[in-house]
Structure formats: C-alpha cells, structure tokens
Nucleic acid binder design. Sequence first.
DNA 1: ACCTGAACACCGTTCAAGT
DNA 2: ACCTGAACACCGTTCAAGT
Lengths: 213, 213
Amino acid sequence: MAKVKTRTPLSIETIHQTAFLVIHQDGLEKFSMRTLAARLGVDPMAIYHHIPNKEALMQGLYNIIFGELFSPTQPLPTQWQARIRELAYRFRALALKYHQLFPSLIASKYLAYNQVKAIEALLSTLLDAGLEPTSAVQVSDSVLAMVTGFAILEINELRNNALPKNTAEFESESEFKHTKELLEPLTSNTFKNSFETGLQLIMTGIEAKLVTK
Amino acid sequence: MAKVKTRTPLSIETIHQTAFLVIHQDGLEKFSMRTLAARLGVDPMAIYHHIPNKEALMQGLYNIIFGELFSPTQPLPTQWQARIRELAYRFRALALKYHQLFPSLIASKYLAYNQVKAIEALLSTLLDAGLEPTSAVQVSDSVLAMVTGFAILEINELRNNALPKNTAEFESESEFKHTKELLEPLTSNTFKNSFETGLQLIMTGIEAKLVTK
DNA sequence: ACCTGAACACCGTTCAAGT
DNA sequence: ACCTGAACACCGTTCAAGT
C-alpha cells in the first residue's frame, strides 16, 4: 500500500516556478534559498540536490526569461528594420515584466544560452541587412547596449530624479541654466518615447552606414 | 598632557578612501561593513556614527566616482559633437577604472548628485546643438542608455561568450548559420571599437534629426 | 535517490554601555 | 562626540545522517 502523504517530489521546474513567484510577490530582497525553501515546504538543503548553488539558480531563471523572446506563436518579421525593432521591443517588454530580476540579470557576468540566441538573431538580421561582419558585430553591441541601458533606466525610473521638484531652490544653488525649458519635457516624457527615439537614432545611423558602404 | 595614542579620528573621507581601496584590491564580494572596519582598525559599529547604513556609503562612493567627470584640469570642448563624445568617453573611462563598483552602481535605484550634473551637461549640450527640449530629453536618455549598457557589456566582457570556442560542436546543435563569417570579427573586435561605432550611430541620427527639423 | 538537521562562517544593524 | 561589544535576525553552504 503506497503512502498517502507522498508529496510531488521537488523538481527543478517547481523550484524555478516558485522562485519566480516569490521574487515577483515579495521582491528580490526577500528572496533567499531559505525563504524559497520555506515556500516550497522543504528543508533549505533539499534545493541543493537539484542545483549546485544560488548563482546557478539565478542563471536558470535568466535563461527562462530570455526563452520568452522566441515565443513560437509570434514569428519575427522578415524585413530587417522591423526585425530589429521587434527584438528590441520584446527585450523591453521582458525587462518590464521581470523588473525585479532584471537589474541583477544585467549585472551578471554570464550570458544565458537564450541570451546568446538573442544576440545571434540580432547579428543575423544585421548581416541580412547588408552590413559587413565587423560592422554587424559593432552595431549589434550598440543595440544590445542601448536596450540594456534603457532597461535599467526605465526600471529604476532614473532621470525622474535628474531635476528636483523644487525648481526655485535648485536654480539658486546650481549653474544649470536650462531648468525652466526642460522641466516640462522631463516630467511629461515617458521612457517609452525615449526608447523609440533611441531606436530611431540607431536605425538612421545603420541606414547611413549602408549607403556610404 | 595630551594622550599619545590619539589615532586620527575616523572621518567620512577616510571611510570612503579605505572603501575604495578594499573594493579595488579584494573585490566587491569581499567588501562588507565588517571587512571595512577591520581595514580601518576599528569596531564595525564605529562606521555607523558617520553614515546611516551601507546603502548610503555606497551612494557616497558613486557620487565621488562621478565627480571625476568634471575634473577642472580638463575642460569640456565647446563644439557640441565633441562635448558629447568627450562626456561619453569619460563615462567609459570611469566605468573601466571602477569596474568592481560599476555594475552595482548601474543597478542602483538612485542617482548621485554628480550623476544628475552629468545628465544636465548632456542636456545642455543637446539644447545648444539645436534640439527641441523634448527631443533633447529623449536623445539624452538614449546616450545615457547606450553608455550605461556598454559599461556592463565591457566590464563583464559579455559577447565573448556569445559564440563558443568550439565551432564544430556549435554548428551541429544550432540553427545559427553565420558562425563562420562572424567568428573572426567576434573574437578580434574590441568593445572600444563597438563603443565608437555606437557613438557614431547616435551622432549620425542626431544630425539627421537636426536637418529634418 | 531524495530529503533533513545541525553546524560553520559569515552578513547588516540595534541597543546599551563605556570614555 | 566618538567608539566598543554583545546580541539579533538573518545569509549561503558543508557535512553527516536519515529513509
């Protein structure tokens, strides 16, 4: 007679799944091997049977996140400009969806397998567009840098602190002369607008590169 | 008669200075309030008399780092293109100099005062170039995003893992068709080259924006 | 094969006390 | 005003043991 109290055995999938849950609900600060184990209803050390250490667990999460870039339901456009835009916007969407995890993901020293796949997709597209291999690598780095930078800018809502709420106080103690004309655009402009502008700057630059070739 | 054993009293400056030393020598992982106190020859709690918590200490370090952007010995160029390039390259130089600290600096939710000053310098320059305020903000965000992204790319030497050392193995298990023509540029191209290319892409884009205005 | 429990070597920080 | 020391509530991880 089989035991009734047989719990579903701990699997790497449930570990990942529960980790996403804990991080999303309680934030990355509250997330630890011990809080994760508690949520799993398991001894902290049980997790180590499926994963060598916390760093490996995090890398697994990062890889799952980037796997979503290639959801088969939505194929990438064929035109190279549209492909690059689509990849960039998918990256941004992931950054916002997993905003708790993204800053640490970005700071990570390693690339997950699905991140490499994303870079390959970028490189392929740029080669198809007609760039030389060396140019393609450099432009790919540039696109990657920009979307990465925008991710943390947007997640941390930086630049919202770039100018103070109290304009008068600021003007008195700063040599910055453009506060008045910039206060309105700085507060009203969204990061999505900036992201779009940044993408356009790069696309214009690429097209100029293709013409002068 | 004054005591002989009077040590130089702990100051915020020596705390910062020693923190930079410890982090540079032993890495950010080894850095803690306790290891810092040990290096200062002081009880861990002595530090808390000069600083509210570790987060504030880190913010202080970040602010000092960005203070170096405005070293009075080297004034910024007057021409707007040269100014932006100079600011970008100074940012990159700081990222490489303080590579141990930069990933956590970038992931930080707050902007240090001198970071705000740097953004102001960028914005001023773009207004001087002739951009509308709204455009200036969006382009400033783009430049900031790109240099920020390149900082972590270069520090973590990412993209070096983008393609495997073993080409044969890779080709067999991947749909990626461009390995051969990209292997050479991917290994030989430096991030400095990519940084320069990224900057050119943006500058070209800005100039196109100014013409069509 | 999978999980547990005690233990180790750490953290940041509070709080009461010393000079 | 400045520093100390014990203590609290945590970490990630090793190691020996249990089923």
